[in-house]
Simulated assay, not measured.
Amino acid sequence: MGGTEHLSVRREGATLILTLNRPEARNALSLPMLVGLYDGWVAADEDDAVRSVVLTGAGGAFCAGMDLKALAGTSTGKGMGGEDYRDRLKADPDLHWKAMLRHHRPRKPVLAAVEGPCVAGGTEILQGTDIRVAGDSATFGLFEVKRGLFPIGGSTVRLPRQIPRTHALEMLLTGRPYSAREAADVGLIGHVVPDGTALEKALAIAEQINACGPLAVEAVKASVYETADMTEADGLAAELKRGWPVFDTADAKEGARAFAEKRPPVYRRA
């Protein structure tokens, strides 16, 4: 199933679950974690049996961002551990950005199930996900400016496009923590659930997605992102190019036939 010592992978039905697994460090980013994440995104993209991905964290935490203690005093990041994986980073210097969803967008829907801290790099990875669920006690925030750092994982670009600019700038410039309720109020996350149930809720949403036509789902996701910066006229034209081919698929015909026959559809990605 893949994975590394800091990233575990398992399947539940048609959903691939990627778990950040370094609880002793509140799942702070490490090289083994980044390599495992990137491999997980690729595996999901390449496996037609996978229809959705859920990203979560072990031990009651999502991700506390970069391991600043390991990184302190070095510009090479050698303190991040995982020397066995360094050849992967050398072969693909962009791997860490792909892992953090800065330079890679999976074609399958990605859901985040957040418990505990989801801060700094955790909030940056979060912005690369599509649907977000958080436990009541989850916390969010971009703390980089408090450490004299820059949130270079994409937040100065993405955050003002995902939530109102005034809220984005406050989060970016104050470096203060946000509760789950506050994060939901500004639109950063979509659901706040009782602590310990974020994964359960994310999997329930994923199951609803998995029951839909996979070609349609992937085309809808692609259209939303590729038209985001277009004018309305250009976006509508691009939508037709994405949308019309879906109607010619066998899956579209199966969906209509199943509706008429009052039975669940059986989609075959065809």
Rank of each mutant, 00 (worst) to 15 (best):
T4W: 08
T4Q: 04
R11A: 08
A14L: 09
A14V: 10
T15Q: 08
T19Q: 00
L20V: 04
L20Q: 05
L20F: 10
N21A: 12
N21R: 06
N21C: 07
R22D: 11
E24M: 09
R26Y: 11
N27T: 05
S30A: 10
S30C: 10
L31P: 05
L31C: 03
G36M: 07
G36V: 02
Y38T: 04
G40I: 11
A43F: 15
A43I: 09
A44W: 05
A44T: 02
E46A: 13
A49E: 14
V50E: 11
R51E: 14
S52I: 10
T56D: 07
G57N: 07
G57K: 08
A58L: 10
G60T: 01
F62W: 06
L68F: 09
L71A: 08
G73I: 03
T76N: 07
T76D: 11
G79R: 03
G79D: 02
M80L: 15
E83D: 03
D84P: 05
D84R: 01
Y85A: 11
D87V: 06
D87Q: 07
K90D: 09
K90I: 12
K90W: 01
P93Q: 01
L95M: 04
A99P: 03
A99S: 01
M100V: 00
M100R: 06
M100N: 03
L101Y: 04
L101G: 07
L101D: 02
R102S: 12
P106Y: 03
R107V: 15
R107D: 15
P109G: 07
L111I: 13
V114N: 01
E115C: 05
G116R: 07
A120R: 04
A120Y: 00
E124A: 03
L126H: 08
L126R: 00
Q127L: 15
G128P: 00
I131L: 15
R132P: 02
R132C: 14
V133I: 15
D136H: 06
S137K: 07
S137E: 05
S137F: 06
A138L: 01
T139M: 06
T139V: 10
L142W: 01
V145R: 01
V145D: 04
V145I: 11
K146I: 10
F150G: 03
P151F: 01
G153Q: 00
G154H: 04
G154T: 01
V157Q: 10
R161Y: 02
H167V: 04
L169C: 06
L173W: 05
R176N: 13
R176Q: 14
Y178L: 15
A180I: 14
L188D: 07
H191F: 15
V193E: 12
V193A: 12
G196W: 04
T197W: 08
A198R: 03
E200H: 09
E200R: 06
E200T: 10
I205V: 15
A206N: 03
E207F: 05
N210I: 13
A211H: 09
L215C: 12
A216D: 15
E218S: 08
E218L: 04
K221F: 07
A222Q: 11
E226N: 01
T227L: 08
A233D: 14
G235I: 06
G235A: 02
A237R: 09
A238E: 12
E239Q: 10
E239P: 07
E239W: 10
V246L: 15
A250V: 09
A250Y: 01
K253Q: 14
K253R: 14
E254G: 08
G255A: 13
F259S: 13
A260M: 11
R263Q: 14
R263S: 12
P264C: 11
P265E: 13
P265H: 12
V266E: 15
Y267M: 12
